[in-house]
Design a protein around this nucleic acid. Structure first.
Lengths: 209, 209
DNA sequence: ACTTCACTCGACACGGTGTTGAGTAATTCG
DNA sequence: CGAATTACTCAACACCGTGTCGAGTGAAGT
C-alpha cells in the first residue's frame, strides 16, 4: 500500500519492523520466550528500547505477528488440499494432518513460544483458539459427511470427537516439538495420529470376545 | 516427624507454610497465577514478603507443593482401583479416566496454574512429566496385556498409542477446565474420552466400503 | 544466664517495563 | 524554496516486582 523510501539514510520503518520479527524468531530458536527482554529484541534489530515501542506494544505483540504468519501458512496449505475422502479416507486424513506437522516443525520455535504464552495473553490465546475452532469445524463437517454416506459408524457427537482429536494433535505435536517426555516416538507422530483418528472415526468394536 | 509448638505466642512455622498454600490456592480460584505477587501471598498468610522466602523459594515453589498434593491424590485413587479389564474393558478404562476428571476438576485452579507454568519452570515441568510418564507406562502395559489375550488387535506401538491418549486427556481436560474454545461439550468429557480410548485400542476398521 | 535456633521484617539493590519529551531527518505543501 | 508535517529515534525517568542482607526477637535447651 505505501510507496516507501527511495534511498533513505536510515532504514525504513518497514525494514525495522521486519528486523524485529526476524530477530525474535532467531532468538527463539535457542531461547525461551520469557527470557527474552525487549532490550534484546531492540538491540538485535539495531534500535533502542523505546524505539521498539514505536513498532510493537510488547514482546507478546511481536509473537502474535509471528504466529499469525504461521497460521496463515497452515490455512493456505490445508485449503489447497483436495477434499476427497471417498476413495481412500485414511490417506485424505493423513494429508491434512501432515500439513500441520510440516508447518509446526518448520516454525517450531514460534509454535512452542505461542503455546507457552497463550495462557497469559488474551490475543495469542484468541488467535490460536480461532484457528483451532476452524479446524475443528472442518473436521466435524467431514466426519458428519462420512457418517452420512455410511462410511463411518454413528457414535459420539461429531463435534466432540473432532475437538478431542484436534486437541490431541496439538498436544502431541507440542510434546514432540519440545522434546518432552512422555511423547510419541520421534518420526512416528504422523502414523500414530492418523491411526487414532481413523480408528476413532471409522472403527467398530470387535464383539468377538 | 517434628514435635512442634505447645502454645506458641506466634503461629508455628508449619501453620504459616500451610497458610501460604491455602492462600495461594484460594487466590488461584479467581486469579491468574502470573498476576499473583509474592507480596499478596505473604499478606494473605499474615506475614511479610521477606518472611515468605523463609518458607518458599518462589511462588513457583508454592505451586509445586500444591501440584504435588494433587498428583498424590490421583495416584492414590487410581492405585485403589481394581485392575479388571477382562469382563468389561470399557468400564475399566472409564473408571480410570473418571478419576482424573474428578481430581482435575476438584483442583481445577491448581491444575490450570500448573499447566501454564510448566513451560517456564523446570520443577513443575518435571513433576508433571514424571506423573504423565507413569500413567503412560501403566496404559501401555494394559494395552499390551489386552493385545496378548486377544481382546485388542495389534496396531501401532502400544506406548505411542498410550502417550497420545494420555496427552489427549490432558489437553481436553485443560480446555474444559479453562472454558476454552474449542472444547468438548461440558459434561460429555468422560463419554467422549472413553469412546476415543476404547475405539482406538479395541476398534477395527469396517472394511465394508 | 547465655546460647542457640526458628523465625521475622525494614531496607536495599537490581533488573525489566513502559512513558515522556525533546530531537532529527525526510516529505509534503504553499 | 522555505515552512509545516510526518515519521521516526532515543536519553532519561518513574515504577513495580523480585530476591537478599543483616539486624532483630522470643522461645527452648543446657
Amino acid at each position: 500500500m505505501a510507496e516507501r523510501s527511495r534511498r533513505a539514510s536510515r532504514p525504513s520503518g518497514d525494514d525495522r519492523q521486519e528486523a524485529i520479527l526476524v530477530t525474535t524468531e532467531a532468538l527463539l530458536q535457542s531461547r525461551d520466550f520469557d527470557s527474552l527482554s525487549i532490550d534484546e529484541l531492540a538491540k538485535g534489530a539495531g534500535i533502542s528500547r523505546p524505539t521498539f515501542y514505536f513498532y510493537f506494544a510488547s514482546k507478546e505483540a511481536v509473537l502474535l505477528a509471528l504466529l499469525d504468519r504461521v497460521i496463515r501458512q497452515v490455512e493456505e496449505r490445508v485449503g489447497a488440499l483436495p477434499r476427497e475422502f471417498e476413495a481412500d479416507p485414511a490417506s485424505a486424513w493423513r494429508r491434512s494432518i501432515a500439513v500441520f506437522i510440516e508447518v509446526f516443525s518448520e516454525h517450531r520455535a514460534v509454535a512452542t513460544a505461542a503455546m507457552s504464552v497463550r495462557s497469559r495473553n488474551a490475543e495469542v490465546h484468541d488467535l490460536w483458539s480461532r484457528s483451532m475452532l476452524s479446524w475443528v469445524d472442518y473436521t466435524a463437517e467431514v466426519i458428519e459427511a462420512e457418517r452420512a454416506r455410511g462410511a463411518a459408524p454413528d457414535g459420539i457427537q461429531a463435534r466432540d470427537l473432532a475437538a478431542s482429536l484436534n486437541l490431541m494433535n496439538e498436544r502431541v505435536l507440542l510434546a514432540a516439538a519440545t522434546g518432552e517426555h512422555p511423547a510419541v516416538t520421534a518420526g512416528a507422530e504422523l502414523d500414530v495420529l492418523v491411526a487414532v483418528w481413523v480408528q476413532s472415526i471409522y472403527g467398530v468394536i470387535s464383539t468377538s470376545k
